[in-house]
Design a protein around this nucleic acid. Structure first.
Lengths: 357, 357
DNA sequence: ATTAGCACTCAACACGAGTGAGTGCTAACA
DNA sequence: TGTTAGCACTCACTCGTGTTGAGTGCTAAT
C-alpha cells in the first residue's frame, strides 16, 4: 500500500493530536480539521490502512488510534515542521549561560534546568569531558610537606586535578625530578595511550627509589584514566509527573528505577557516537528495556576544541519532537560561540579529588 | 489521666504493629499479644484513653488506631528498645568506607547508598565541609602562562581549590608577591573573618597595579566564601516507592517536589545545630510544610578535626526508629576511627572549580 | 476492674446497568 | 471508483447498590 499525501496528512494529524491530548485519536476529531475536508468514514478507512501499515495502533477495539514507534519515526524523519524558537526561550538559555561566577559544571546544570523548564521534560546528559586530547603537561605541586597535587593539562587547559596525602615526606628536588620524568614519558600521548605500561616505565626510569613514588604514580595513573570519564546528570526528573502516561505509581517506579541507575544512563548517552548532530531514539531504539515506551533526544555540545558533552531529554514517545529538537539544536549550535562570547576565551574544566598514599 | 505502665505497653504495641503493617491497629490484634494478657474490650477502653490523651488517632470511626506525632515522640523519647546492629550491617558500612581509591565525597555517597539499602529509606545529607577553621595557607600556582590555581588549606590539609584562566599573563615574581601579600593578610583568619574588606586591603597593599590582580583576588574571595558551603545530596530516593503511604501519585509528587528543592533540604539539614548527637524530627517538627507526615533522623559525622558533615534518612513517620537511630549512631561514632584506620591519617577534602578572569 | 456480647459504623470490594466514543461494514451516491 | 451516511457492534468507564468484615462503643454480667 502506498503512503500517499492524504495518508501522510492524516498520520500527521493523528500524531499531533495525540501529542497534545494523550488520548487515542478518533476519526471524527480528525475529520473536523479544515485542511482535511473529509468525512469521518473516509478518515476511518484511511486510518485502517495506516494501521495495516504499522504506523498506527489501536489500544482496544472501540478506541481511537495511537501512533506506533514506526509512526513516530516516520513523523520525525519526514514530516517534522520546523519549530521556531521564541525569543523567550533563547533568553532562558542565554541567561543560564551568562552566570560568569559559576564554574562550567554549574553552567551546564543551569542550562539543563532551563531545558527542563522549557520542555517540561526530564533532562539527562553528560558533563563536558576531554575527548582523549593529547596530554600536554603534567604538573606536580607540593602543597605542604606531605601533600601533593597533580595537575594534568592538554593544550586547551587544565583537565584534571587530584590531591594526595603522603605518609612520607618528599623533597622539592625529588618531586621536580619525578615531574620531569613524568613529562618526558607521558606528554604528547593521548589519554588512551597512557596505560599502566607507561607508568611502569616511569617507575623504572626512577631507578632504585621508584618505590617511594609509587603512590604518586598511582595517583597520576588514576587521574589520567579519569580524564574522559563521563559524569552523568539528571535534572527535573519530577517533570514526568506531568504526563498522564505516568499517572500510575508502578509506571513511575519503573522509570525512576531505570533512571536512577547510572549504568542505564551511560548506555543511553553512549548511543551518541558521532558528536555532530541531534539524535532521536524512539521506543525500543532506547538501549534500556524498561524505557521502551519513551523517547530520548540527545544533542552534543562543544565547550572548547577538546571539551565536549551531551545533553538531552527523555519523556513519553508522545512528545513535541519539533520543539525539543529545535531547542537542543539551538543550544548545540550556539553553545561554543555563546560561551566564547561570555567568557572571552576557551574554557577550562577541572575537577579536584583526593587520595591517600 | 495518667499514663500507667499498661497504657505505655499498649501504645508501644500499637506503634510497633503500625510500623510493621502500615495498617490501623485494632484492639483484637493487640489483645492477642502474649505479654498483654487482656481482652480486646479492655484494650479498646485503654485505646480510647490513649486517643483522648492525643497519643493515638482514629482515621475514621470504624477503623483501628494509628499513632499521632505526639505518640511517636513519646515512643522515641521513652520507649525505644536498643536495636543491636548486625555484623552484616556493620560490614556493609565498613565496605563502603574501605574503597581507598575513591575520594571522600564518593565514600560518603557510598555510605549513604549503603544506608539507603540497609534502611530501605531515602538518605539525605551534607558532604563534609570545613567548619570555619582557620585558613593556614593560601597558595597560588601558575599552571601555564595564563592559568592560575588557588589552593586554600587549614592545618588539616587542603580544603578548597579553584582554577582561573586570565586574559593577561602574569609573571612568576608578580604571582609570588601576590601570594605573599595574601598570606600576610589572610592566614590565621577564619573563613567568616575573611570578607570583602580584607580582600580590598590586599588590593591596597598591592598599590598601583592592584587592578591587574583583581580577578585573582575575586577568585580567592569566592573560594574562601565557598569553604563551608554545604553540598547536599540525596540517595536512594526511589525507596519511597516501597511504602504503602506513597502508593498514590499525588503524594509521591509532593514529596519529590519537596526533596528536589535544595532549599528545603538545606532547611532540614540546618536543624542540626550541635554536631554531637542524633536528632529526630517527627511530623511538623520538619521545617518543610509538605513533609509534615514524615520523619527525619539526622546524624553528624566528623572526618577530621575540622571536617564535618551530616547524614540522615527521611521516610514516613511510621519507621523503624530503633534500627535507623542505631545505624546512624554507629556510623556517627565509628566514622572517624574507621576512616582513620583505613586511611592511616587525617583526611583531606578538596574541590576543584574554574572561573574566568 | 475485666470481659463477653451486641448493635452500629464505614471503607472496600464486587457486581451490573447505562453511557458514549469509536469502530467496521454495507449500501447509496456523485 | 472514491466518498459518505447509516447502523450495528464493541468496550472502557462511570455510577449506584448491596455485601462484607474489621473495628468500635456501650452495657451488663462476672
Amino acid at each position: 500500500m502506498a503512503l500517499d499525501d492524504r495518508k501522510k496528512k492524516i498520520l500527521q494529524a493523528v500524531i499531533e493530536d495525540y501529542i497534545n491530548t494523550a488520548e487515542p485519536v478518533g476519526s471524527r476529531s480528525i475529520s473536523k480539521r479544515p485542511e482535511l475536508n473529509l468525512s469521518a468514514a473516509t478518515i476511518r478507512n484511511e486510518m485502517g490502512d495506516l494501521e495495516e501499515m504499522g504506523l498506527l495502533v489501536q489500544p482496544h477495539t472501540s478506541a481511537g488510534r495511537v501512533p506506533s514507534a514506526q509512526g513516530y519515526r516516520l513523523y520525525v524523519n519526514d514530516m517534522l515542521m520546523k519549530y521556531e524558537i521564541t525569543a523567550n526561550e533563547m533568553e532562558s538559555i542565554r541567561l543560564a549561560m551568562q552566570n560568569k561566577i559559576n564554574e562550567l559544571d554549574k553552567i551546564i546544570c543551569d542550562i539543563a534546568s532551563a531545558f527542563a523548564k522549557l520542555t517540561n521534560l526530564p533532562v539527562i546528559g553528560a558533563l563536558p569531558t576531554a575527548e582523549s586530547g593529547v596530554v600536554s603537561n603534567i604538573k606536580l605541586v607540593k602543597c605542604d610537606e606531605m601533600t601533593i597535587m597533580v595537575i594534568i593539562s592538554d593544550r586547551s587547559g587544565i583537565i584534571k586535578n587530584k590531591v594526595l596525602r603522603l605518609n612520607y615526606s618528599i623533597s622539592d628536588e625529588e618531586l621536580l625530578r619525578l615531574n620531569n620524568i613524568l613529562n618526558e614519558n607521558l606528554t604528547g600521548l593521548t589519554k588512551n595511550e597512557i596505560g599502566f605500561g607507561n607508568i611502569m616505565e616511569v617507575q623504572n626510569a626512577l631507578g632504585g627509589n621508584g618505590d617511594v613514588f609509587h603512590s604518586v604514580l598511582e595517583l597520576v595513573h588514576s587521574a589520567v584514566s579519569e580524564i574522559d570519564t563521563k559524569q552523568i546528570f539528571v535534572e527535573g526528573l519530577s517533570n514526568i509527573f506531568r504526563f498522564p502516561e505516568y499517572s500510575d505509581v508502578d509506571k513511575i517506579k519503573v522509570i525512576f528505577n531505570a533512571l536512577e541507575n547510572k549504568e542505564n544512563l551511560g548506555k543511553i548517552v553512549g548511543t551518541m557516537q558521532n558528536l555532530n548532530s541531534v539524535k532521536v531514539l524512539i521506543g525500543d531504539e532506547i538501549p534500556v528495556e524498561e524505557l521502551k515506551d519513551n523517547s530520548v533526544i540527545l544533542a552534543p555540545y562543544r565547550v572548547s576544541s577538546t571539551l565536549t558533552g551531551i545533553i538531552g531529554i527523555i519523556g513519553p514517545a508522545r512528545m513535541d519532537y519539533s520543539k525539543v529538537i529545535s531547542i537542543l539544536e539551538y543550544f548545540s549550535g550556539e553553545m561554543s560561540t555563546e560561551l566564547a562570547h561570555n567568557f572571552g576565551k576557551e574554557l577550562l574544566i577541572t575537577e579536584g579529588e583526593e587520595n591517600n598514599g
